[in-house]
C-alpha cells in the first residue's frame, strides 16, 4: 500500500501547480478555485457515499456544522488558529455523525437521501430561528492565524490558499486510499448487492456507518475551509439546495476518480459565473441545458472523457446501467 497510484501522483503533482497558479492567476479566479476546493471537499464526501450507492441529499449538514463550529469558536472563544478550528469542526462532525449514523445506516436509496435531507433541514430550521446564532443572516468569521503565524493582506490570502490546497489534496489522497481499502471495496459490493455482502459475512451496516462518518468529517473540513475563505457563514450552508448542488456536481463530474468532484466543482462554478455574465436574467436556463446535455451525452459524467483514454478497466466503479439493478 505504500505505492502511489496514478490518481495520487496526479494529486501530488497538482499541489505545486495549484500554489503556483494562486500567484500567477488573477486573484478573483484564485478565489473561485479556493471556494471550489472547500465545496469540493463536500462533493468528495458525497462521492464516497455514492460509491456505496448512497445518495446524501443532506451533506450540507456537515458542511454547515464545520462552518458554524469554526465560526462560533471564533466568535465566542476568540480562537483564530486554523488548525484548532479545523480540529473543532472535525470533532463536532465526528460526534454528530457517529450518533446519527446509527439511524441512517438502516436506510438505502431514496430513503437515505430523504432522511439525510430531513436531518439537515432540521438544523436549517434551528439556525434560522435562533437569533443568538445570527438567524438567517449568519455571522462573520475572523481572519485565520496559523499556530504562531498571523499574516496580513496579500500574504494572508496566499497562505490560506496554500494551506487549503494542501489539506484538500492530502484529504483526497487519504480518501483515494480509502476507496482502495477493504472498506471501499465492501462499499462497492454493497452498491451492487447488499444481501450478498451480508451472506459473505461482512456487516453492511458497519461499512455504511463508517463511510457516513468519514464523509461527514471530510465535509466538515470543507465547511471550515470554505467559511474561512469566505469569512461568513449562514444557514444556507445546510439548506437542501446547497446539499442538492453537491450531488449534482458529483453526478456531473462522475464518480470514476477522486479528482473528478474537485474539478467538477470548479467547472460548475465557472459555468455559473459565465452564464450569469452572459445572461443575468436567464442563467438558470443555461445551467439546466448544459446539465441536461452532459447527462445525455456523458452519462458517466465528465470524468468519462478522461477515463476513455485510461487503460485500467479492471473494475469500473460506475454503474450507469440501472436496468441491471432490478427495478
Amino acid at each position: 500500500m505504500t505505492q502511489f497510484d496514478r490518481t495520487e501522483l496526479t494529486l501530488f503533482a497538482a499541489l505545486p501547480v495549484l500554489v503556483l497558479l494562486s500567484v500567477l492567476l488573477p486573484s478573483w479566479i484564485v478565489n473561485y478555485i479556493q471556494v471550489s476546493l472547500g465545496t469540493g471537499m463536500v462533493a468528495l464526501g458525497v462521492m464516497i457515499q455514492m460509491r456505496a450507492g448512497l445518495v446524501s441529499f443532506g451533506q450540507g449538514l456537515y458542511f454547515c456544522i464545520g462552518g458554524y463550529a469554526a465560526g462560533l469558536a471564533g466568535k465566542y472563544f476568540g480562537i483564530t488558529d486554523l488548525f484548532a478550528l479545523l480540529g473543532l469542526g472535525v470533532v463536532v462532525a465526528l460526534v454528530t455523525s457517529v450518533a446519527l449514523g446509527f439511524l441512517l445506516r438502516r436506510y438505502r436509496e431514496i430513503f437515505y437521501a430523504m432522511l439525510s435531507l430531513a436531518v439537515s433541514m432540521i438544523l436549517y430550521g434551528l439556525l434560522s430561528s435562533t437569533e443568538e446564532l445570527g438567524s438567517t443572516d449568519g455571522f462573520n468569521l475572523p481572519v485565520p492565524t496559523y499556530l504562531f503565524f498571523a499574516p496580513e493582506g496579500e500574504t494572508a490570502r496566499l497562505t490560506l490558499f496554500a494551506i487549503t490546497a494542501t489539506i484538500v489534496i492530502l484529504s483526497a489522497v487519504v480518501l483515494n486510499r480509502l476507496l482502495r481499502s477493504s472498506l471501499g471495496l465492501v462499499n462497492e459490493a454493497i452498491r451492487e448487492n447488499e444481501l450478498r455482502v451480508e451472506y459473505l459475512g461482512t456487516s453492511a451496516h458497519m461499512a455504511v456507518h463508517m463511510t457516513y462518518v468519514v464523509a461527514a468529517v471530510v465535509s466538515s473540513m470543507g465547511g471550515v475551509l470554505w467559511a474561512l475563505a469566505l469569512g461568513h457563514v449562514d444557514p444556507e450552508m445546510t439548506n437542501w439546495t446547497t446539499s442538492g448542488s453537491f450531488v449534482f456536481i458529483v453526478i456531473l463530474a462522475g464518480t470514476g476518480s477522486i479528482i473528478a468532484p474537485l474539478i467538477g466543482t470548479f467547472l460548475l462554478e465557472i459555468l455559473r459565473v459565465y452564464a450569469v455574465e452572459l445572461s443575468p436574467n436567464t442563467w438558470q436556463m443555461i445551467l439546466g441545458s448544459v446539465m441536461l446535455l452532459t447527462i445525455i451525452f456523458l452519462p458517466k459524467g465528465l470524468w468519462s472523457l478522461v477515463q476513455k483514454t485510461s487503460p485500467r478497466k479492471r473494475f469500473d466503479p460506475d454503474t450507469g446501467d440501472a436496468v441491471a439493478k432490478g427495478v
Binding site: 450531488v247 449534482f248 427495478v327
Partner: peptide, 8 residues
C-alpha cells in the same frame, strides 16, 4: 437510467 441520474 439510474434513479439518481433521473433526479438530476
Amino acid at each position: 437510467r439510474d434513479e439518481v441520474l433521473m433526479v438530476l
